Amino acid sequence: MAPKEEWTLHRPRNAPILNPYIDYIEKVLKALEAGLGDKNAQSLTPGELVKKGGERPGDSALQEQYDLNLEQIQGYQDDWHALDDQIGFIASFAAEDANTVSREFEELRDTAVEISSAVPDDPTTARQIDAVNALDNAVGVAYEAILRAYAKLEGKSTEVPAQNWSGSGGAAPYVPGITDTGSAYSNDSPQPIGEGEKAQVQEMYEYLLEKGFTPAQAAGILGNLQVESGFDTGAYNPGEGAIGLAQWLGGRRENLEAFAASNGKSVTDWKTQIDFMVHELKGSESGAMSRLKSTTSAGEAAAVFDQYYERSSGEARGQRIANAESIASSMAGRSTDSSVLA
């Protein structure tokens, strides 16, 4: 790494949405820079980086103070989560290929300085959101370059398999246009649906098509629900208190129960649970919906639904993808629609 030069990110005057993000990314980048000082960074962990970032604005404050809509709020919060994931990966990979990390870090730092410097004082809300998106995209570029280097280091022609991504055994985040779901998670076999469950799977699949999902997206969703609950609407995890097809817990479980009650339905009714899932995707989970709607294959849809809607640890992502592809294949045998496996 070149000798350190003093640098800071510009904070435009009267930019209450943008500046907390700039504060956060600057603290994290400076911590990463310090950890990379000897091109080794073995003592640096993603958790330590995140702790250095400080507080982030909550959804209610963003909506009440800045009159943002739900889609803008979700996108803003998604940028924060993406920053955590991607910076964490960069940190964990630093000890493996410090030269690549150092080079990409320097480019990321310089880009962040340029983006923040280009924002004028008293920027509009839209200009602030655009700058947050630009900073998040810059982190994503560095992350993807390092992910490719990691794959090359591991001697693989595609991206890193789930079991090799980090010390915790979690899956590498799905990267649109880069991650090859057919090979990056190829070690898993689909779980059998089981006698008596096949008809219900087809009903849910057809119901999802009625809701506007493509055949591939419907299969991707169902591949996740198979892992989450085995398609048992009464599935219950006593350790977390999670229930239902998607294993909703906490406030989301309470919202499901309220949704069912308001519609005069049982909370274990499968259509009610699917309706609630769609309700979330059109509202509080609209960020996940926009990503899901951009997918074109069952494996891609399964990976996106896992990462952005289920938000699991990623350890079973390969299973979810295998399940989705199996369901897509099965449904294709019952349909003339060639897009099922698209």
Rank of each mutant, 00 (worst) to 15 (best):
M1R: 13
W7C: 02
L9F: 15
N14K: 14
A15M: 11
I17D: 01
N19L: 08
Y24F: 12
K30L: 14
A31D: 12
L32D: 06
L32H: 08
G35S: 04
K39W: 02
Q42I: 12
S43G: 14
L44N: 04
L44G: 09
E48V: 10
V50Y: 11
K51V: 13
L62C: 11
Q63W: 03
Y66D: 09
N69V: 05
L70Q: 15
E71Q: 12
D78S: 05
L83H: 04
L83D: 05
D85N: 08
F89T: 09
F89D: 13
I90A: 07
I90D: 03
A91D: 09
E96Q: 12
V101K: 06
F105Y: 15
L108V: 07
T111M: 10
E114Y: 02
S117Q: 12
T124M: 01
T125S: 11
D130E: 15
V141L: 11
V141F: 09
A142R: 03
L147T: 15
A149Q: 09
K152I: 08
N164S: 11
S168A: 14
V175W: 11
I178W: 11
D180E: 15
D180I: 10
T181N: 10
G182H: 13
S183Q: 12
Y185M: 10
N187F: 10
S189C: 04
S189D: 15
Q191N: 10
G196S: 07
Q202S: 15
E203I: 13
Y205M: 11
E210P: 02
K211W: 02
G212A: 07
T214D: 07
Q217H: 03
L222Y: 02
V227I: 15
A235C: 06
Y236Q: 05
L245C: 10
Q247D: 06
Q247A: 01
W248L: 09
W248P: 00
G251R: 07
L256N: 01
F259E: 04
F259L: 06
A260M: 02
A261P: 03
A261C: 08
S266T: 07
D269T: 11
D269N: 15
D269F: 09
Q273P: 08
I274T: 00
M277W: 06
M277E: 04
H279Y: 15
G283T: 04
G283Q: 00
K293G: 00
T295N: 06
A298Q: 08
A298I: 07
E300R: 01
E300T: 01
E300Q: 11
A302H: 03
Q307V: 05
Y309Q: 03
G314A: 07
E315I: 12
G318D: 02
Q319C: 01
A324F: 04
S326F: 12
S326W: 11
A328T: 04
R334M: 14
